[in-house]
């Protein structure tokens, strides 16, 4: 045995642990149980996709992982520590298209998290350039969001999520507003970025095809109160290709998810 084996090792960066988490929203009329006893374990570097019917609490779960909302019960740890408030060094969040600031250029949007922490201008610029290059937007830094296509905007959002190099990236339906072709391309792009950076990704989507195509693991949730009803391992090899979409493995995985969702509808 190694000499240090008896010392509890730190949880590796990028692990996400959700233990018996519940969320109850108190409204004036009633208490809404959004999530009930949700537990899941995401190993560092894994690509995990959450699917489930609308209103089952996917966004809520992601918000809690980001420290943007506190769970009513249970614990959540990111890289081994709880997340009582947002911590951009541990977690990057990618929102839907509308989340870019229209008054800032692409590179200023990417620099935004750094500007908040007082990183110097030149340092900021350099890191934003790197992030934009990573997402394939080299040379588009000076444009404003309205001068970019939907896909490009989401690349900027991803760059903004990555600029502080957090080990975990949370994405809530990032490609929902895109047309199907752009969406496919962005999926491939995301996988490329993910492979290049080794981030842990938790990704929410309504598209079952997208879920199976992207994921190492798919987690299926039930309607409210949201619970985990299935946890699938996607054994398809990487890199994923378009041809896999028509294969048997792909089809049976997607069918299995669909049966859960249909049952709950």
């Amino acid at each position: 045995m190694q000499p240090l084996a008896n010392i509890t090792p730190l949880k590796p960066a990028g692990a996400v642990e959700v233990r018996n988490v519940g969320q109850i929203f108190k409204t004036t009329t009633q208490d809404v149980v959004a999530l009930e006893d949700v537990s899941l374990d995401v190993k560092p570097g894994r690509f995990v996709v959450l699917v489930g019917p609308s209103g089952c609490g996917k966004s809520t779960l992601l918000m809690m992982m980001a420290g943007l909302r506190q769970q009513t019960s249970g614990t959540i740890t990111i890289s081994g520590a709880p997340i009582p408030e947002p911590d951009p060094n541990r977690v990057g969040v990618v929102f839907q298209e509308a989340s870019l600031f229209p008054w800032l250029t692409a590179e200023e949007n990417v620099e935004f998290p750094l500007a908040l922490r007082g990183v110097t201008k030149s340092d900021r610029r350099a890191r934003a350039q790197d992030a934009l290059k990573l997402v394939g937007l080299d040379g588009f830094g000076k444009r404003h969001p309205h001068e970019l296509s939907g896909g490009m905007k989401q690349r900027v959002s991803i760059a903004r999520g990555l600029v502080q190099d957090p080990p975990v990236l949370l994405m809530d339906e990032p490609f929902a507003a895109l047309d199907e072709q752009t969406r496919m391309t962005m999926g491939d792009e995301l996988l490329r970025i993910w492979a290049a950076t080794g981030k842990t990704v938790v990704f929410v989507t309504h598209s079952l095809t997208e879920a199976v195509y992207l994921a190492d693991e798919v987690i299926v949730m039930s309607p409210r109160p949201g619970r985990i009803v299935d946890h699938l391992q996607v054994s398809l090899p990487r890199p994923r290709t378009y041809e896999m979409l028509s294969g048997d493995t792909f089809g049976s995985l997607r069918d299995r998810i669909w049966r859960h969702i249909r049952k709950s509808a």
Binding site: G67, V93, S99, P113
Partner: peptide, 8 residues
């Protein structure tokens, strides 16, 4: 929400 998630 973006601002909050980046610790503004």
């Amino acid at each position: 929400t973006v601002a909050r998630s980046y610790g503004a």
